[in-house]
Design a binder for these strands. Sequence first.
RNA 1: GCGGGUGUAGCUUAGUGGUAAAGCUCCAGCCUUCCAAGCUGGCUAUGAGGGUUCGAUUCCCUUCACCCGCUCCA
Length: 516
Amino acid sequence: MQPAKAETSQTATKDMKDIVALCKRRGFVFPASDIYGGINGFWDYGPLGVELKNNLRDLWWRRMVTCPPIGPDGHPVQIVGVDSAIIQNPKAWVASGHVGGFSDPMVDCRETKLRYREDKLKAMTVVDKKGDNFYIAFDEDADQEIIQKRLKKLGIAYEANAPMGAFEKMYKDVPNFLEKVIGPDASKVGTLTPPKQFNLMFQTYVGATADEDSKAYLRPETAQGIFLNYKNVLDSSRVKIPFGIAQIGKAFRNEVNPRNFIFRSREFEQMELEWFCHKDDAAKWQKFWFEERKKFWKDLGLSDENLQMRNHDSDELSHYAKAGLGTADIEYKFPFTAPGFGELEGIAHRCDFDLTQHQQHSGEKMEYIDPDDPKNRYIPHVIEPAAGLTRGVLALLCEAFTPDPNRPSGVYLNFHPKIAPKKAAILPLMAKDGHPEKAEKLYMELREEFPVDLDIKQNIGKRYARQDEIGTPFCFTIDNDTMNDDTVTVRERNTMAQERISMSKVAEYLRTKMKV
RNA sequence: GCGGGUGUAGCUUAGUGGUAAAGCUCCAGCCUUCCAAGCUGGCUAUGAGGGUUCGAUUCCCUUCACCCGCUCCA
C-alpha cells in the first residue's frame, strides 16, 4: 500500500544525530556538566525536556494511582503510591540479590575481544610435548561434544580423563595461570586479562567516616523501596490483596558502557508498580497489566508499527523471575535499534522472591493474612510493570520527530497535545496596531489553565517554525480582523491548516483537544 | 572495558606553525497583513591539560566527550 510505504521511508530518515541536536538546540536534553566537557552516562533535562518528562510522569501517576484502571471485575483496581529513600540500609541490597549479582568479576580476551564472567568458565589441564602443563578455558556449559570439537580444531588429542576445574579456582591456585591458558574462543595462550570487578551499584559512605561499616549504595531500582515498605503500607492504608504500590523516582547503575543518548544512562528514572496478588492469580494479572501498559503507550501516541511485545527467553530472565511466568517486554523501535527494538517497559512476574528474601534477611513476617479466612496466610506474588521514564521520554521524542522538507523548519515534533511541553503559542501577526495588546489579553486568560507561550518578536514564519520544532500543537494568531470581531486563527501544527474561531472559544478549544 | 572514527561559534562548514572566515540560528532595531523574506547592528568558537617551538587551532603526548562495531545491560 502506497501510504504505508511513504510512512516507512519517513521513519527511516529519523537520525539520532538530528534528534540529539534538536534536543540541545531547543532545550530538551543537554549533556550533564556540558561546560566541563560532559560526563559519560549523565544528562540534564532543559526547560522543555523537564516539562515533557513531568508530563509523562504525571500521566503515568494519574493512570496508576490517582485514577487507576478498571479491573477484570468491573471495579477500579487498588493502588497507592510511595516515595522511598534512594539510600537504604545496605542489608536490603544483600537480600534483593544486588550486592552479589552486581559484582561478578569479568575476564576479557585480547585476541577475540570477547568478555566472560569468570564464574561461568571452567578450564581443562593438558600436558604438552615437553611435559609442561597448559590449560584450555571453556564455557561452563560446554559439553563433551563441544570440548572434543574444540580440541580437534586446536590439534590437541582428546583425553577423557583430563582434569577440568573451575576457572576461578585455577586462577588463584596455578602460578602464572593466565600465561598458560587458551581463552574459550581463542587460538593462542595468554590472551586473557585478569578478572576485573564490575560493581554496577554506586557506592557511598553514610556519615563522616568512610569505612566498610558505613558503606551504602544508591538504589539500582525503585522496586526495592516498595518491598521495604510493603508491611508499613499494609498496616497503615487498609489495602487488601490484590493491590498495588507505585513509585516514580531516580535509580543509579554504574553501567559499563552507557550508550545511545538517554537510552542507557547511569542515572535514570523509573516508574514502577508492584502488584501484589495471590499466586494462583498471577497469570491473570500479568496479562491484565500487559494489556493495560501497552494501551498506555499507545494512548500517548507511540505507533503500532514502532511497538513490539516480546517474551524474555528463559536464559535472559532475571534471578527473581526464573521460577515464575517470565517477563514480557514492551519494546520500541528506536532509530538506533531499528530495524530491531529496545526495551521500554518490562512486565515481570517476580513471584514471591523479594518479600521472601526480605522476610529471611530482616526476620520480619511478610505474610498476608486473608481477612475472610485468617488461617490462610501467604506471601503474595508480585507482577511488576516497570517502565523507564527517561526511556519513555526518548521514545516520545523519537516518535514525534518528523522531518518535513515542505516547511521552513524542515522538521516538527508531533507530540500528542497531552504530552507537548507547550500546548499553544499566542502570536500577534505584527508588533503594532494593537496586536500585542490583544495577544497579551488572550495569554493572560489562558496561562492559568495551560502552559502557553506568548511570542511577539520577529516575523510570523519564524515563530511558526520555532513552535514546530518544540512540538507546540496549536498557534493562535491575532491579526487585523481580530481587532474588529475578536476572532483569531488557529494554526494546526501537523497540517499547517488554519481556521478562524472566536477568541472567547480558545480555552474551550484547547480543553477539547487535550482530551483526544 | 576493547578496537576504529570525530572534536573550530547554538548549527553547518572553511582555513592556517604567525590577527581564525562564512552562511544559517540567536539578540537588538527598522520594515512587514500568515509560514525561517528584506535592511542595519550585535553576541558567540579551535573540548581539556601538557610537550616541542620565538610563536600551536595546526605537530606530538595524555585526557575528556560523542559516534560506529564488539562487550555489558543483574
